[in-house]
């Protein structure tokens, strides 16, 4: 019985690893997600490395940190890490819409906020007014960038604004899809750039500009390459609501990665060999016992001939036990 549980567990672990390897995450903004809402293409194109907020102190000063669609508020400690990164000369790209990016802006003491109302444009759009086209002005180039369920930026931004929606855009406060009397017309500021000590903070009011399904629209990809710059591109992880599957997958994959790409590989291979040998032996013994049990079954009558006083039922019971 014990060997069956052991073999079953071993098989389950192997199947779980196989599924985790083959089935990608479906989470929004996940760099492993190749579906429409993932960042797999963007992270590959920009050569983004995934890092937690705690690792930012070791990043070179010309690095660019992408904070895309955070679901969780920034604690003071984490905001201070971002602040230190900016002070050291790094560039932070904060992209959010209806998330919690305002918590970071508050902590950085900047006079800009994500409005939170839905930006619609019935004229400059892709298929639907909720996918408006906005104009970015960066390094002397004008870029047509496609947004996807975006909001706008509030605050006295002046010449810090680097991206505008069209004059036909409006804020759909009641989310009924049409322009009502009390809903303001554009143009609205959708991206702003702030000098912050030695670094720079760029705030963009849509988190979905670089998802896989939007990257090929308009000049979204060019915007990504312009923002990434020449330094190290870092994607901040740990601020999204992860599904259970993604959590398990990430844990498994990172463990496997750590095992296969570090010195832990060697003890791991040895343990795997021992486990393999042990399970092989268990399987062999199990099969051998089954065979031996069959032999004994045939010999029960022979044994009874030699020992007529022995109990046949007891012998049969013994045979069953030996089978197990």
């Amino acid at each position: 019985m014990k060997e069956y549980i052991f073999l079953g567990l071993l098989l389950s672990v192997l199947i779980i690893i196989f599924i985790a390897y083959e089935v990608p995450s479906k989470d929004d903004f996940s760099p492993e997600n190749p579906l429409f809402n993932g960042l797999s293409q963007a992270s590959m194109l920009a050569g983004m490395v995934q890092e937690n907020v705690g690792s930012l102190s070791s990043a070179p000063p010309n690095s660019t940190l992408f904070i895309i669609g955070p679901d969780k508020s920034f604690s003071n400690i984490d905001a201070n890490e971002v602040k230190s990164f900016l002070k050291a000369g790094g560039t932070v790209i904060l992209m959010d819409d209806f998330g919690t990016g305002n918590s970071l802006l508050e902590a950085l003491d900047l006079n800009v906020r994500f409005d939170g109302r839905l930006l619609m444009d019935p004229l400059f759009m892709y298929r639907n007014p909720a996918l408006p086209i906005v104009k970015f002005s960066m390094n002397g180039s004008a870029l047509n960038v496609y947004f996807n369920y975006a909001t706008v930026l509030d605050g006295n931004l002046g010449n810090r604004c680097i991206g505008y929606s069209s004059a036909f855009s409006f804020l759909d406060s009641n989310e009924n899809g049409v322009k009502d009397q009390d809903e303001p017309f554009g143009p609205f500021c959708v991206a702003a750039s702030f000098d912050y000590s030695l670094g720079r903070l760029i705030v963009i009011s849509d988190s979905s500009v670089f998802i896989n399904s939007m990257l090929d629209k308009g000049m979204n990809e060019k915007l990504l390459s312009m923002l990434s710059g020449n330094g190290k591109a870092i994607l901040l992880v740990g601020y999204w609501n992860q599904s259970e599957y993604t959590f398990i997958r990430n844990s498994l994959m990172s463990s496997l990665y750590a095992l296969l790409n570090t010195w832990l590989l060697y003890p791991f291979v040895i343990v795997l060999t021992i486990l393999g040998a042990a399970s092989g032996k268990i399987a062999y013994i199990s099969l051998a016992k089954r065979g031996k049990g069959e032999d004994l079954q045939n010999n029960i009558q022979e044994i009874l001939k030699r020992h007529p006083d022995w109990d046949e039922e007891a012998l049969i019971r013994l045979r069953e036990e030996m089978r197990q």
């Binding site: 479906k26 669609g69 639907n128 996807n148 399904s213």
Partner: peptide
């Protein structure tokens, strides 16, 4: 529990 389902806030739609 390994159903690959995400429960995050919808913030976008597939343009296609």
């Amino acid at each position: 529990p390994l159903t690959a389902e995400s429960t995050t806030i919808p913030r976008h739609e597939d343009p296609s």
